[in-house]
Lab assay of single mutants.
Amino acid sequence: ADDEVAKLLVDAYRKNDEDKLEEVKKRYNISDEQVKRLIRKVL
């Protein structure tokens, strides 16, 4: 599931889509710190 979330985050990140990032964060209840970590893992 982590990889799936990471893909969604990276996708939103690449598109610079703040709304999507927020949506994913809320849906999976993850912190900014986790977001950064997941994005770093993929990029």
Rank of each mutant, 00 (worst) to 15 (best):
E4W: 14
L9I: 13
S31Q: 04
L38Q: 02
K7C: 12
L38F: 05
A12R: 00
R27M: 13
L43Y: 07
E4T: 09
D32N: 07
N29K: 07
L43A: 05
K25T: 03
Y13S: 02
E33R: 06
K7R: 13
D32V: 04
D19W: 10
R14A: 09
Y28C: 03
V10C: 10
R37T: 12
D17K: 04
R40V: 10
A6Q: 07
S31M: 02
K15L: 13
E22S: 08
D32F: 04
E33M: 06
R40H: 14
K41R: 10
A12G: 02
L43H: 05
D3F: 11
L8M: 11
R37D: 14
L8R: 04
N16C: 15
R37Q: 14
L43Q: 06
E23Q: 10
R27L: 13
L43I: 09
L8S: 04
V35F: 14
R27Q: 11
Y28R: 00
R14D: 05
V10S: 05
D2Q: 10
Y13M: 08
A6L: 14
K7A: 13
L43V: 07
R27N: 06
E33T: 05
Y28M: 02
E4C: 11
V5S: 03
I39P: 01
L9E: 00
K7T: 08
K26N: 09
E18Q: 15
A1W: 15
D19A: 15
D2A: 10
R27C: 07
N29I: 02
K36N: 09
E22I: 09
V42P: 03
K7D: 07
V5E: 02
Y13R: 02
A1K: 10
D19P: 06
A6Y: 13
V5C: 05
K20T: 12
N16D: 07
K36W: 14
D3K: 08
I30D: 00
N29Q: 07
L9N: 00
Q34F: 11
D3M: 12
E22K: 10
N16I: 03
V42A: 13
V24R: 00
L38Y: 06
D11A: 09
N29M: 06
K25A: 06
L43T: 06
E23G: 04
R40A: 14
I39K: 01
V24T: 05
A1R: 10
L38I: 14
Y28G: 01
L9S: 00
N29Y: 03
D2L: 14
D17T: 02
K20M: 14
D11F: 03
L38T: 04
L8Y: 05
D17G: 02
E22P: 00
K7M: 12
K25L: 03
K15Q: 13
I30V: 07
R37W: 13
V24H: 03
I30C: 07
D3P: 09
E22R: 12
V42D: 04
D17Q: 06
D32R: 03
E18G: 13
V24C: 04
N16K: 11
L21P: 00
Y13A: 03
Y28S: 01
Y13F: 11
L43G: 04
D32K: 03
A12K: 00
A12E: 01
E22D: 09
V35R: 01
V35K: 01
V5F: 06
R40N: 14
R14Q: 12
S31T: 13
D17N: 06
L43W: 08
E18W: 15
K7W: 15
R27I: 10
V5K: 02
R37S: 12
K25Q: 07
E18S: 14
R40Y: 15
E4D: 11
S31D: 08
A6V: 14
I30E: 00
K15D: 11
Q34D: 14
E23R: 06
I39A: 02
V10W: 15
E33Y: 05
K15P: 01
L9W: 03
K7N: 09
N29C: 07
D3W: 14
K7G: 07
K41M: 12
V5L: 13
K15N: 14
I30S: 00
R14S: 09
K7F: 11
I39L: 12
R40D: 15
R37K: 13
E18I: 15
L9T: 01
E4Y: 14
A1H: 13
I39R: 02
A6N: 06
D17W: 06
R27K: 13
V24D: 01
K26C: 06
V35N: 01
A1G: 11
D11L: 06
K15Y: 07
V24M: 10
L8A: 08
K20H: 05
K15V: 08
K36A: 13
V42E: 10
